[in-house]
Design a protein around this nucleic acid. Structure first.
Lengths: 273, 273
DNA sequence: CAGTGGTCTAGACCACACT
DNA sequence: GTGTGGTCTAGACCACTGC
């Protein structure tokens, strides 16, 4: 839309271009590197800001490459490279002929994008959807460890959820998860219980919180009495412990999750490259 | 090398360009899609062939973008896009000012690129290198299951290795691995025992076999008597079972590996995105 | 200095989706 | 047809490496 005068000057984009000025050594921190940042990285940063600010919400169509190029006063190719990287990071999704969209956990081919558990036999997740059951939901003040994982202070309000996921009628995953109270203000047991589909889709729709990446730490542990009871195994049965921290834009932690997986009929699948 | 006459015609590259001819519906299999393949994908394929053929070996410098562009009679940008993807797949490594190199498991910052086990406390792998001990090495005829995983026929010759990895003096990983006999002809216990560094580096240097990607399946299992003994834990102790198939170029399986990991002081780290 | 990869531009054309 | 992303080209200039 921004059809400013042609401004053929290739010298005055509205973006910083730390190089190609006079060397201008001032203003640098003690680091020796002048922090060269190519234009497309800056564009990427600007788009990221719009995503963080919620200007474009999950599922939204963002402006076309040509329009963004005009807006930022760079060439289409430069915008394209920025979007290429955001697309590779699963933040944006390109659809030829339609446009570029903000990635979302809803309306995606894969329902549970972060769940790596698969049935041993069937190749597909064609084992039908998981049955979810909330065992517990409460609002509490964060213990030290939870606070640390979520980047909060001890005592800050958090939500705690305990739930079970069953596949083909068999309880398979028991997990506790904690969410920071502020971004998820208003979360209720009803909301959780009534919701169909992936939990991260609910977070997007109700709270505008999109989980972008996650770190998991896996261990093999022995089932304690309570977990064993819930999962229908004997105490001491080996379970896969999965500890996850999920992050929104900007590497802000937004969920801490501890799961116990039965792996006698399922396995955790991982691709290395 | 192919320095053909200038041939300024932009119409006759030596590559197939399924489109932009007369529609030419002939020659297609029953599939409805005409299998459009952009030029840079074809270039990528050609480079891949050279890698598979061993024309450029791990660590080698490949020809410059400009030279490849000339050789393939396309623009530098097209070669660049092909190399971009190969680089994203960890098959090539670009180094500004120097050139583009074939990726390698030796001489890499990370010693064990496919090993996801980390100590619980220290963030880095600064726990010192792993101590390796070969427990068993033999040549045998592949049982059905091993053959299946390696894409061989039952009874084909394979090598079997059993070894233990210790971190800070503590036996932590017990693993069995199987290699197809043909590509690894001449492998001996001595070669394995004398070698320092990652096993995949040895495979590259001695056999020209580069592992490109791998699939892992994880389960929690109880230690049997023998494994428990070797790893210094009680029978029944929960262990992380890691089953891996590693592939060379072209998705050819080249190693099947079954590991048991102690996870009381370590964890398996995974990043989701 | 020359050679390499890295960035940026401008313009042409193709493939796809919608209307 | 129009508008979108996708491919391809050609050329300019920048940043890094090593001679």
């Amino acid at each position: 839309m921004v059809q400013n005068p042609p401004a053929p000057s290739l010298k005055t984009p509205e973006l910083d271009y730390p190089n190609s000025g006079s060397d201008a050594g001032a203003g640098l921190s003690s680091s020796g590197t002048p922090a060269f940042s190519p234009l497309y990285q800056q564009i990427k940063g600007l788009i990221l800001q719009s995503l963080q600010a919620g200007e474009w919400k999950p599922g939204d169509l963002i402006p076309s490459e040509l329009e963004l190029a005009g807006r930022f006063r760079v060439s289409q190719g430069t915008v394209r490279k920025a979007i290429d990287e955001l697309s590779a990071d699963n933040l944006l999704v390109r659809r030829q002929g339609k446009g570029t969209f903000v990635a979302t956990h809803s309306e995606q081919q894969v329902q549970y994008r972060f769940l790596r558990l698969e049935p041993d036999s069937c190749n597909r997740d064609t084992q039908g959807p998981a049955a979810r059951q909330i065992l517990d939901f409460r609002r509490l003040r964060a213990p030290a460890e939870i606070a640390r994982m979520l980047g909060l202070r001890s005592g800050d309000p958090v939500f705690e959820v305990r739930r079970v996921l069953s596949f083909q009628g068999l309880p398979t995953i028991l997990e506790d998860l904690w969410l920071p109270g502020n971004p998820f203000k208003g979360l209720s047991l009803e909301t959780l219980a009534n919701h169909q589909g992936a939990m991260y889709a609910l977070f997007e729709r109700q709270f505008g919180v999109r989980m972008v990446r996650a770190d998991e730490k896996l261990k093999a542990v022995a089932a304690d009495a309570e977990s064993a009871e819930t999962l229908g195994v004997a105490a001491g049965f080996p379970l896969l412990s999965v500890e996850r921290v999920a992050y929104t834009y900007n590497d802000t932690p937004m969920e801490y999750r501890r799961g116990l997986y039965r792996t006698d009929k399922h396995h955790y699948h991982n691709e290395l490259s």
